[in-house]
């Protein structure tokens, strides 16, 4: 039994930082110095982390399953890309605009589809992304269609840091943006609003019964998540100076879903484990067998879902808990 004064201490202190939270950031900075020749790949990993983090907000917290999250990634990528190709190369304003446009798209589409649930919702998210891909394909004049958008030229960040060939600036730029986005995401999930998203996931009927504006909350987090996905897309456009139709593809939506399932959803840091794991796995399997690598991914996914339903992060947490028990 706990003392009366300590009741609720876990809730009062849950938002406090723990030392373990510094690990992924230390790793990301260390990687910059340890693997200088992999910075371009590293930036891609960071972008995937951000994209997966945005999905975690809706999937892991609010319980919205989406098969079309690439829609917002793509909107962000094209917004930043077109802006630059039209002559506006300042990166930060490109990111902000991408976030706004993707956020608005998330708000409007979310308003329309988030009254549905389950399979219907899944299909609608998918349709929305496919629809956008078709539009991007049609509007060749702006998007470059199948050939992709070229002519993106980025100005130096803050007018100082030039994007270099080795991707050093790109890596640090992505890391800085990811960090800012993470701070926002972390604040949201620990807030009363974030808590009520968990409530929607846990029991939507009860949520209505306590008078929560469920639809508004869902649309709000959907828009925030969309904006964040848009920033990830914009980072890709800006750091690779290219946008292809694949930014909107079903495969990209599927990739990010796999990343967050592998890493573990509903805990923010799942994205940090899932993204590098998935990208390394993909890379290795594709090297081993260019034909059957997807089969390998599928197999890993099945094993994770069956034996570690809370993802690799969940597995680590369980191991950590056991270790602490044993060492007592």
């Amino acid at each position: 039994m706990i003392g009366i004064a300590e009741r609720g201490a876990f809730l009062r202190h849950r938002h406090r930082l723990s030392w373990a939270e510094s690990v992924p950031w230390i790793a990301a900075v260390a990687a910059f110095f340890l693997f200088p020749s992999y910075e371009t790949l590293g930036a891609q990993v960071l972008i995937m982390v951000l994209f997966a983090l945005s999905l975690d907000l809706i999937l892991g917290y609010a319980g919205i399953i989406s098969l079309g999250h690439a829609a917002f990634f793509g909107i962000g990528a094209y917004t930043a890309g077109i802006l630059s190709a039209q002559g506006w190369g300042e990166p930060i304003s490109g990111l902000v605009l991408a976030a706004i446009v993707a956020g608005i798209a998330g708000f409007i589409s979310g308003w329309a589809i988030l009254r549905t649930t389950g399979l219907t919702l899944l299909m609608l998210t998918l349709c929305f992304a496919e629809l956008l891909r078709e539009i991007a394909n049609e509007q060749e004049h702006y998007t470059g269609g199948d050939d992709g958008l070229r002519g993106i030229r980025m100005d130096p960040i803050f007018g100082v840091f030039e994007f270099d060939l080795f991707g050093e600036t790109a890596y640090l730029y992505c890391l800085a943006v990811l960090f800012i986005m993470f701070v926002v995401a972390r604040a949201i999930v620990h807030s009363p609003f974030g808590q009520s998203l968990t409530g929607i996931r846990e029991n939507i009927r009860r949520m209505h019964a306590v008078g929560a504006p469920v639809h508004l909350k869902l649309v709000t987090i959907y828009a925030i998540s969309a904006a964040m996905a848009g920033v990830a897309g914009a980072l890709l456009a800006q750091t690779t100076e290219y946008v292809g139709l694949t930014v909107l593809s079903f495969i990209r939506s599927g990739d990010v879903l796999i990343v967050i399932i592998l890493g573990g959803f509903g805990r923010l840091y799942g994205a940090f484990i899932g993204a590098p794991l998935y990208m390394v796995l993909q890379d290795q399997l594709a090297k081993q067998s260019p034909e059957y690598w997807l089969f390998g991914i599928g197999l890993v996914l099945v094993v994770v879902v069956m034996f570690a339903p809370r993802g690799v992060l969940g597995l680590l947490e369980d191991l950590g808990a056991r270790f602490r028990r044993d060492s007592r």
């Binding site: 809730l11 009062r12 849950r14 009363p192």
Partner: peptide
């Protein structure tokens, strides 16, 4: 309070 997005619930 449930509308608040940035202040942690633990501080409520």
């Amino acid at each position: 309070a449930a509308r608040a997005m940035f202040r942690p619930i633990g501080r409520r």
